[in-house]
Amino acid sequence: MPGKCKFQESWLAKDIYKEWLVKDGQDIHFARCRACSKSIKLQTMGEAALTSHAGGAGHKAAVRKLVEGTSRALSQRLHSSSSEAEDGGHHSARHDSMDLSRLKHQQRTEALDHQQQQMKIMEWENRMKVLAWEQELVREKRRAAQQKKKAFRMKKAYYKAKLKRMGEEVQLSSSSSSDEEEKTSDLTG
């Protein structure tokens, strides 16, 4: 049912998922990919989200690396001396689990570092967008002030010409024209 999908323990037994799928310990609507160190949202797509993730080229490459690393580690352990295997059989099992927990911790740390880098990149991108918007706003304000100045000059010329046609000579007082110029200069500043 869309919006209600949860992690299913049965998925862990499926061959397609068992090498990389891990249950998210914090949210039942998510799964984790050990190979990619990513969370997969199950809530809306369910198992289809897993198959979609598994089909990605990046995931396939990460799984190959994970499998190669695991097989390499196993072959190194198998080639260890037989005396170590006899004496430390119990110890090597404990050592294997410690190695796996270290590997998981390292993967989590790398995933967090990657997420932090992505967050910083997004933050800088957003800052750049805000700066661009602010610059555009300043340009628009300048254009509006220039248009206002031009409209004032045109209006002044229009009325001057109209009065001239009526036969009156216009003498603008210096105070009224300077007041209008101050108003327009305040708008541009």
Rank of each mutant, 00 (worst) to 15 (best):
D27E: 07
D27K: 05
I28T: 00
I28L: 04
F30S: 03
R32H: 03
R32N: 00
R32F: 11
A35H: 06
C36V: 05
C36A: 09
C36M: 05
S37M: 12
S37P: 02
S37L: 10
K38Y: 08
K38Q: 13
I40V: 15
K41R: 11
L42T: 04
L42D: 03
M45T: 06
G46V: 12
G46I: 11
E47K: 14
E47V: 15
A48G: 01
A48T: 07
S52T: 09
S52W: 09
S52H: 13
H53G: 03
G56Y: 06
K60C: 06
R64N: 05
L66E: 05
L66P: 02
V67F: 07
S71R: 14
S71C: 07
A73G: 03
L74I: 10
L74E: 03
L74W: 04
S75V: 05
Q76I: 02
Q76V: 01
S80Q: 12
S80L: 08
S80F: 05
S81A: 01
S83D: 03
E84Y: 02
A85Y: 02
A85W: 08
E86D: 03
E86N: 01
E86P: 01
G89V: 08
S92V: 08
A93E: 02
A93R: 13
R94H: 11
R94Q: 13
H95R: 09
D96F: 14
S97A: 12
S97G: 03
D99M: 14
L100K: 04
S101L: 14
R102S: 12
L103K: 05
L103W: 14
K104P: 00
H105N: 11
Q106L: 13
Q106E: 15
R108H: 10
T109W: 00
E110W: 01
E110V: 02
E110A: 14
L112K: 05
D113W: 06
Q116C: 05
Q117I: 07
Q117S: 06
Q118R: 15
Q118E: 06
M119Q: 14
K120L: 12
I121K: 15
I121L: 15
I121Y: 08
E123M: 11
E123T: 09
W124M: 13
W124D: 08
W124F: 13
E125H: 13
N126F: 09
N126H: 10
N126I: 05
N126E: 14
R127S: 04
R127L: 11
M128P: 01
K129D: 14
V130T: 09
V130S: 04
L131D: 07
A132V: 08
A132F: 05
A132W: 09
E134K: 11
E134I: 04
Q135N: 10
Q135A: 09
Q135S: 12
E136I: 03
L137S: 13
V138H: 11
V138G: 02
R139N: 06
R139F: 08
R139I: 02
E140D: 06
E140G: 02
K141L: 15
R142G: 00
R143E: 08
R143G: 00
A145E: 02
